[in-house]
Design a binder for these strands. Structure first.
Lengths: 201, 201
DNA sequence: GTCTATATGGTGATAGAC
DNA sequence: GTCTATCACCATATAGAC
């Protein structure tokens, strides 16, 4: 283990994901990594800095990883499917860091909050543009790209609350189910379903 | 204000929602409610007990409120729409408690965790049965009720992360958009879209 | 019932030897 | 670079007067 800094980050992500940021003390982290508490402060100035590093890294990796995947497709439907499946794969691969980002949240350092927000916004914009493009090209029916994008990210992100790695169905398989649902819809007949028609009675 | 206990719970929910459970001290809560720190301990034995009371109350209220709403409809489509809109209305009405439950999570007392889990499971079962019934009666197309239910609750619950009360679109309006999306789907043509067809090129 | 004052323990962070 | 030992602080919770 030649890179203590990386090991600390990995152990911290696992610890934060398990117990939450506030319930994880530097003493706990020292015990997990097998070094002394003071040694942690040699690599990171504060506990908050460890958290910040985890979040920024996982956010940047997500954008890069998913972005590379969707660029491999031209068809909007395949691009959306790639987005959702790549997101789920990345979530499962970096589960602890992902959970730390979405659940064990405590707030980032004020001076880094803007960086994280920019990464998040860029990622969501990527999805919205994909959807808007699909609508413009006739692959998707008319809809509000912001709403659709939020709905999709909601389903994917909420997995952090219930999905445990190593489950029977992989995260990618769950995302594929969600994709089928979002594309096909629930209704059996076409036509508006919003209406307040109180049935044929 | 004749009911200090209720006031404490309301202020605590607002505080926890704003700052998170761990970052809210009993001193902060005392300042918010205008009573002394020791007075809080007269009404609740521990800080954890305050949190527990908020969560159990909002969960029970959700099940009751949404349950009453869907019983007013017989048509599966209308029942599903009622479920989603009632959930969103309840979320907006009890915003602070809802956010505390879904975001500022710290874990409940071990002896009450089972109670909360039972309430959650019962609520999710309500939705799954509604969906399964709709499929059986031909109102919804064949799908996995567990997956569909999770997708719907994901969209609704994730609103706690981004929706701020008093926004232009009400929570109920957002839920109505989600309903339209989940019912109608995104695709413009019917047929399987899962396939790995790489387009006409 | 509500206050002032305090006990007690654990936290993030530091000092300084090796 | 890594350790042992320790600081200063603030949290929850309690005691006991009024």
């Amino acid at each position: 283990m030649p890179a203590p800094r990386e090991r600390i980050l990995a152990e911290a992500a696992a610890l934060f994901a398990r117990a939450g940021y506030e319930n994880s003390s530097m003493g706990d982290l020292a015990a997990c990594t097998g070094v002394s508490k003071a040694a942690l402060y040699h690599y990171f100035p504060t506990k908050q800095a460890i958290y910040d590093a985890i979040i920024l890294d996982v956010l940047a990796g997500l954008t890069e990883s998913v972005g590379a995947d969707i660029r491999a497709h031209a068809d909007p439907t395949q691009r959306l499917r790639s987005f959702m499946l790549a997101h789920a794969r990345y979530f499962e691969a970096r589960h602890a860091a992902f959970v730390t980002m979405l659940i064990g949240y405590s707030g980032m350092s004020p001076n880094l909050r803007a960086d994280a927000a920019a990464l998040r916004d860029g990622y969501e914009a990527l999805l919205r543009e994909l959807i808007a493009d699909g609508i413009a090209r006739g692959a998707f029916r008319a809809a509000n790209p912001a709403t659709v994008g939020r709905a999709i990210l909601s389903m994917l992100n909420w997995m952090a609350r219930w999905y445990k790695p190593g489950q029977a169905a992989s995260a990618e398989a769950v995302a594929a189910e969600y994709f089928d649902l979002i594309m096909g819809g629930l209704q059996t007949q076409r036509g508006p379903v919003t209406g307040d028609s109180h049935g044929p009675g």
